[in-house]
Each structure stands twice: as structure tokens, then as C-alpha cells.
């Protein structure tokens, strides 16, 4: 546990410095992949290479390579069923929980192969947190929801209240719930529940936060609050977000990956990465005609 905390702390400090001192040249980011956006921008957190993802015999995702950079928001967009969620869930090995799910190819997290035999997926998930499409608070009190993760990593009781408060403040929920921390989380509105889930995810001080369409179940006002929150959080966390909302990707993200469904060589449907670049480039000057069609079709 001691080790873990050290790593987290040092990672955090590094992040702050990286922002002020640029450009950092990471040799990993300079791999000559065409789709790589601005290799000199920042340190690479995830380096995905030739990833295939399967559910049993079904290949959901084929040959994906991209990089996720530190302290940036990376957005995944694309039509439904193209494998965005599947891909996202590879980053913290969430797909391990699904019977028959497996991957081929590599995902490196800070240089270490995530799917190495030696790697404990539980340790991975402590560092790489996740926020889901539908708010999914535990049927416990607001306090207990946020305290759940820190308790798992053995945080002292005396520090718990402080951590909970910090996380709730960080997710802009504190003022709304500070008087009813022991009330059930189910009494909160959908938007509040989702911010609670974000608070719960950041309470363990993860390195990366993965978000799978975190606003799709929310009304526009709640969505705006979450977007604002995500923009704020990016100074501290690396964020990967799946979204259906093109404007949202354009507004919030630094890098955008566009996925699509294609027929593979055997004629079956599989997801593939069409284009990965700086968000600005994707939305103003996409390389691939399919990207352009998708963007213009939706944004108008």
C-alpha cells in the first residue's frame, strides 16, 4: 500500500510540472504512427498498439493503435456499436469481468504492459478509475459511497471524512449534500448521482479517469455541470471519455478518436479506429472522408 501511494503522489507532482514545463519529449510518443497527434505535446499514459478485442468468437474491435496523453481529455466518438465502450473498458481491464472477453495486441500504461501475466487487474483499477453511463451509486449513504474506495485501500478512519469532503468539493457536489451526508444516495437527482459517482471515482486518487457517456442519462443542465467539472478535473487527472455528443467532444477534449464499423476480411462487422488526431483537426480538417461525413452529419 505504501508503494502505491508513493507512486500516486509522485505521479501527481509530475503532472503539475509537466503543464508548466513544455515541451516534454517522450520517446514513446514519437513512434511514427500517422494517426498520432502532435507527438511532442505531452507524456504518454496509454500506448495502444494493434489492439483487437473479442467477445467469444466475435471480434468487436480490430487493430486499434493510439496514444492517450497525460492531463488531457481524450474523446472517443463514433456510431453506436462500433466498440467505444469495449475499447474504453480495456484500459482498466473491466472486460475481464465479462465471460469470454479477451484482447490481442498491447496496451501499455506508463510503459508497463497492462495485459501482462504478472499484472493484477485489481491494482490496475485502483489507478484507473471509471465512471459509467448510468449513474450507479451504491444503495448506501452519500458518505459511504465516497468512502468506499478509500476504505478499500485501507485509509485511516480519521482521514476518511477529510477525503470524502475533498472529493465531494472536487466534484462540485459538496454544497448540495454537506448537510445530508448520511442520507441515501438514491435520494439525489440523476445529475447529482453522477457527480457523486465522479466523487467516488476520484476519492481513491486515481491516475486516470475513464468515463463512458457520463452525461447520456442526464438533462442539459446537469450535463453542463458535469462538462464543466470534467474540464476542471483534467488539470489533475488524465481523462478518457466516450461520448455520443459531438459538440461535447469538440468543447471538452484535446484529442479525439473516431471509430466506425467496418466489414473485416471475413465479412463480419467489427469496430475500427478511423482517425485519431487533435480535436481541432478532427473537427475542422479531418483526414478521412468517413470522419467528415459523421461530423458534418451530426453537427450540421
Amino acid at each position: 500500500m505504501v508503494e502505491t501511494n508513493n507512486l500516486n503522489e509522485s505521479a501527481r507532482e509530475e503532472k503539475k510540472t509537466t503543464i508548466s514545463l513544455s515541451p516534454t519529449i517522450s520517446s514513446m510518443a514519437t513512434r511514427g504512427d500517422e494517426s498520432t497527434a502532435d507527438p511532442s505535446a505531452a507524456e504518454v499514459i496509454f500506448d495502444v498498439e494493434k489492439l483487437d478485442a473479442f467477445y467469444g468468437d466475435f471480434k468487436a474491435l480490430s487493430n486499434v493503435s493510439l496514444q492517450v496523453y497525460k492531463s488531457q481529455v481524450t474523446a472517443f466518438i463514433g456510431p453506436s456499436g462500433c466498440g467505444k465502450s469495449t475499447f474504453l473498458r480495456c484500459f482498466n481491464r473491466m472486460n475481464d469481468l465479462i465471460e469470454g472477453a479477451r484482447v490481442e495486441g498491447t496496451i501499455k500504461y506508463r510503459g508497463a504492459d497492462l495485459y501482462d501475466e504478472e499484472v493484477d487487474p485489481v491494482e490496475v483499477r485502483r489507478r484507473i478509475g471509471m465512471v459509467f453511463q448510468k449513474p450507479n451509486p451504491f444503495p448506501k449513504s452519500i458518505f459511504e459511497n465516497v468512502a468506499y474506495g478509500p476504505r478499500l485501500s485501507g485509509l485511516k478512519k480519521s482521514k476518511l471524512a477529510e477525503t470524502v469532503e475533498k472529493s465531494l468539493r472536487r466534484s462540485a457536489l459538496w454544497d448540495e449534500v454537506k448537510d445530508r451526508l448520511s442520507a441515501s444516495a438514491y435520494g439525489l437527482s440523476g445529475g447529482q448521482q453522477q457527480r457523486l459517482c465522479i466523487a467516488r471515482a476520484i476519492a481513491v486518487q486515481p491516475d486516470v479517469v475513464l468515463m463512458d457517456e457520463p452525461c447520456s442519462a442526464l438533462d442539459p443542465i446537469a450535463t453542463a455541470r458535469i462538462e464543466e467539472l470534467i474540464t476542471e478535473l483534467k488539470s489533475e487527472y488524465t481523462i478518457v471519455i466516450v461520448t455520443h455528443n459531438m459538440q461535447q467532444a469538440a468543447r471538452m477534449s484535446d484529442q479525439t478518436a473516431f471509430f466506425s464499423v467496418a466489414l473485416d476480411s471475413h465479412g463480419s462487422r467489427t469496430g475500427e479506429l478511423v482517425e485519431f488526431d487533435k480535436t481541432e483537426t478532427i473537427f475542422t480538417n479531418p483526414n478521412d472522408s468517413r470522419t467528415e461525413a459523421y461530423i458534418t452529419g451530426r453537427v450540421g
Partner: peptide
């Protein structure tokens, strides 16, 4: 990398 790998180890 070595540090990360070690911290993720089973």
C-alpha cells in the same frame, strides 16, 4: 516503467 510494472504486480 519498471516502477509502474512493479506497482501493478500481482
Amino acid at each position: 516503467t519498471a516502477k509502474t510494472r512493479q506497482s501493478l504486480q500481482r
